[in-house]
Design a protein around this nucleic acid. Structure first.
Length: 451
RNA sequence: GACCCUAUCGUCUAGCGGUUAGGACAUCGGCCUUUCACGCCGGUAACCCGGGUUCGAAUCCCGGUAGGGUCGCCA
């Protein structure tokens, strides 16, 4: 039988990092097995669900590259979907649930009380066979022992999660339920529901949770908890996928930077851990840097442009080739695209704004002669190739009788207004004669005007 | 309160009866260097505790402790 897995989010806001990982693990397993990945929207809680939230979930999954074989094509519950098991919005499947509820009622396995419908739950322990956790014998808790039955249809007629989740998984032919460990103890109820419907339960695989750095449950408001932070924060989806796949799963050796197709190839339920993992933004940022350093030029430009434009309005209207060259010499310095402006902003400034803070107090009258010499040297340079610029600056240092460093550092400060940045020769070459000389004259003026 | 899961450096992890307990992030030194990074070299740093089983336990069993999860007319 071919593998069919699903991701069934409830659209109550941004996609949580834990949800994204659950989706990823399901997708990975489907792709590894050549199975089917289903997306189902659990929008039964009308008060909390919004069309915007559905769209965000769709966008987040697309951004991560987690394509679904069956599921909605848009955030419209009545719109077209992919696959033969629709509708894929629970809010549009009520007629299906009704049939199952009647079966339960007719067989006396469920009954009405206080206007709601309750399921007669087994009082004996339920054994859960979990692919990750193993055999789990779930006994009733003290509260449950008082009244083991649970509500499956609210008094207002709306069926609850436990019921619809099971019915949909049956109807959609789900073979493996891969979900967060927070559902493990609830699985006993689900198994009894499968029994009641006379259906063999699917394989269960409960994956460990993602915790905060301090070990507590990762809540929505926590740093790094929302996928929006990565989509809008200068991250590459490949890096986020790679990082998430390693949170609770291991390929079995020390490999860490793994392209997604290799993760798909090596992915297996047996490689999933049993213990929760803490979220480490530091390592994610490092990994993102690894991906940025190897990204192709177009990806680098596309990723950085929004941040550059926000920092220096008009930046995106510079010539494409110029932007590409400017970003290329800065790429090794950043770990997220959001960090790019702090190194590359001067490339997109017609006039540099000098500040005591940015220059670290290094632009003083003492360096006036050096900057003047750099200006005059470059003004007379026959061209602005990297080689010519290098030779020119060396000559300036020689003429002044100082080490090259005594020229490079003030030159960088004067031309870029910053202490840190790409190689001086390269940045002068890319900036070009006119802009470099303008910046140098501005620097001279700024120093002479008493700063 | 009850029930369930889990336990290797600060963090993510390798290990699946015999290892100098390995790697990565972070951190601390050093090198490289015109800056900041990158890169390279090196250091600090872990088997939660207590009992067993065994010639031998990080690995298997039991107990404790700690952390997490669940017990809704939320999902």
């Amino acid at each position: 039988m071919s593998v069919r897995v699903r991701f069934a989010p409830s659209p109550t806001g941004a996609l949580h990092i834990g949800g994204a990982r659950t989706a990823l693990f399901n997708w990975l397993y489907a792709r590894h097995c050549g199975g089917v990945f289903v997306l189902r929207i659990e929008d039964t809680d009308e008060a909390r669900n919004t069309p915007e939230a559905i769209q965000i979930i769709l966008d987040s999954l697309k951004w991560l590259g987690l394509d679904w074989d069956e599921g909605p094509l848009s955030s419209d519950p009545d719109g077209p979907g992919l696959g033969e098991h629709g509708p894929y919005f629970q809010s549009r499947r009520d007629h299906i649930y009704r049939k199952y509820i009647h079966r339960l009622l007719d067989a006396k396995m469920a009954y009405a009380k206080d206007g709601a419908i309750r399921f007669r739950m087994d009082r004996n322990p339920v054994t859960i066979h979990d692919r990750i956790v193993g055999e789990v014998e779930r006994k009733l808790t003290d509260r449950e022992a008082l009244d083991p039955d649970f509500v499956i249809v609210r008094s207002d007629g709306r069926p609850v999660f436990h019921l619809v989740n099971v019915i949909d998984d049956i109807e959609m032919g789900i073979t493996h339920v891969i979900r967060g460990e927070d559902h493990l103890t609830n699985t006993a109820r689900h198994i009894r529901l499968y029994d009641a419907f006379g259906v063999k339960p699917p394989e269960f695989a409960h994956i460990p949770l993602i915790l905060n750095p301090n070990g507590s449950k990762m809540s929505k408001s926590e740093e790094g908890a929302s996928m929006n932070e990565y989509m809008d924060g200068g991250f590459l989806p490949e890096a986020v996928n790679n990082f998430l796949s390693l949170l609770g799963w291991s390929p079995g050796n020390d490999d860490e930077i793994l392209p997604v197709d290799e993760i798909v190839r090596r992915y297996d339920l047996d490689g999933i851990h049993r213990s929760n993992a803490r979220f480490d933004m530091n390592k994610l940022v490092w990994m993102n840097g690894e991906y940025i350093h190897k990204a192709d030029a177009a990806t680098l430009v596309r990723g950085c442009l929004p941040f550059l434009e926000a920092d220096q309005p008009g930046a995106s209207s510079y010539p494409e080739e110029y932007i590409a060259k400017a970003l290329e010499v800065c790429r090794e310095k950043v770990k997220t695209f959001a960090e790019m402006p702090q190194f590359a902003r001067f490339f997109f400034m017609k006039r540099i704004s000098f500040s005591e803070e940015e220059t670290g107090g290094q632009l003083t009258p003492a360096v006036l002669p050096v900057i003047k010499a750099v200006h005059d040297g470059l003004e007379k340079a026959p061209d602005f190739s990297v080689e010519t610029v290098a030779a020119t600056l060396s000559q300036v240092a020689a003429d002044l009788g100082v080490k090259p460093g005594k020229v490079m550092s003030p030159a960088r400060l004067a031309i870029t207004g910053q202490k840190a940045g790409p190689g001086v020769h390269e940045l002068i070459h890319i900036l070009g004669r006119e802009q470099v000389l303008t910046n140098l004259r501005d620097a001279l003026d700024w120093i002479q005007s008493g700063q």
